[in-house]
């Protein structure tokens, strides 16, 4: 497994939790930040990140590299990320399988792309330029999707398997995203896990979603990271851990209406317990 972070639960960092994180009152084994929030030249954000980095392992999880852009990665953005990685030496760097920019316009959302040979070649080229600039391999996260392209040439699992093979990148496996896709696009989650080369997984994400009822009465799950992890996702997570046969770095994400740090910390504890019990069950069986 492509794992560098502690094989336990970490927490997505919010500036409002800064004092709690460093207070020592909570058991936090690692934190994840979005590097885009630290692309200013100086000031308090950097001061705080420096103190966090001094006290625990850090993961940088990008949301803006647009690995799926047919016109390539933005070199200015890559330079800024490279500077941050050199300065803070994060334990792990990750990004998304998505695109956000086209022709100098950045759309600030993780937009979907078809699973075709052309897409694979574009993403592989972009992942390679990022890895070359950073002088390290990165993890790439599976998307949450609301739309299904016509003419996909690969399954999502097949696409990720080939991407890892061609670039050496690892997989950041978001269990909630898989659950959202299964519901929104009719993907079979267990078949997906059967096909996916799970040994490429270096980190797992867990988050909450909301349910929107569309005008035609059908249900659409929205990956809003605005609530606790639902039972079905915990169940899928345990099923993944059993398949892995080992503990895995697991991040609790809560980006909308983020609660007090004590709640975040409880979710992290729950993830550690879910991991332990999934592995115990495995041993007992």
């Amino acid at each position: 497994m492509n794992t560098l972070l502690p094989k336990s639960a970490g927490i997505g960092f919010k500036p409002k939790h800064f004092e709690d994180v460093l207070s020592g009152r909570f058991d936090v084994s690692w934190l994840e930040v979005h590097p885009e929030n630290y692309m200013g030249d100086g000031g308090l954000p950097h001061q705080n990140l420096t103190r966090i980095r001094e006290s625990m392992p850090l993961s940088m999880h990008g949301v803006g590299m647009s690995l799926g852009s047919a016109d390539g990665v933005d070199q200015d953005h890559l330079k800024r990320l490279t500077a941050l990685v050199e300065r803070y030496q994060p334990t792990q760097v990750s990004e998304h399988l998505a695109w956000s920019h086209w022709n100098q316009t950045f759309l600030n959302d993780l937009l979907p792309m078809p699973y075709t040979a052309e897409s694979l070649s574009v993403v592989a080229t972009n992942v390679n330029s990022v890895q070359e600039a950073l002088q390290r391999t990165i993890l790439v996260e599976n998307p949450s999707l609301y739309l299904q392209f016509e003419g996909n040439e690969f399954s999502e699992a097949g696409f990720f398997n080939l991407l890892a093979e061609q670039t050496g990148c690892g997989l950041l496996f978001d269990v909630n995203n898989l659950y959202v896709c299964a519901n929104n696009l009719g993907l079979n989650a267990q078949e997906h896990l059967d096909e996916l080369r799970i040994e490429n997984i270096g980190e797992v994400h867990l988050a909450g979603h909301s349910v929107e009822i569309l005008a035609n009465g059908s249900e659409l799950l929205i990956d809003d990271h605005g609530s606790s992890v639902c039972d079905e996702v915990w169940w899928l997570y345990q099923s993944l851990v059993r398949r892995l046969g080992d503990a895995v770095p697991t991040l609790i994400e809560w980006d909308t209406d983020t609660p007090d740090f004590s709640i975040m910390s409880q979710e992290a504890k729950k993830a550690n317990q879910a991991m332990t019990s999934a592995l115990d069950l495995d041993t007992a069986a």
Partner: peptide
């Protein structure tokens, strides 16, 4: 004026 950069500071 859509953003040109991913970093919202710009």
């Amino acid at each position: 004026h859509p953003p040109a950069q991913a970093a919202m500071v710009y």
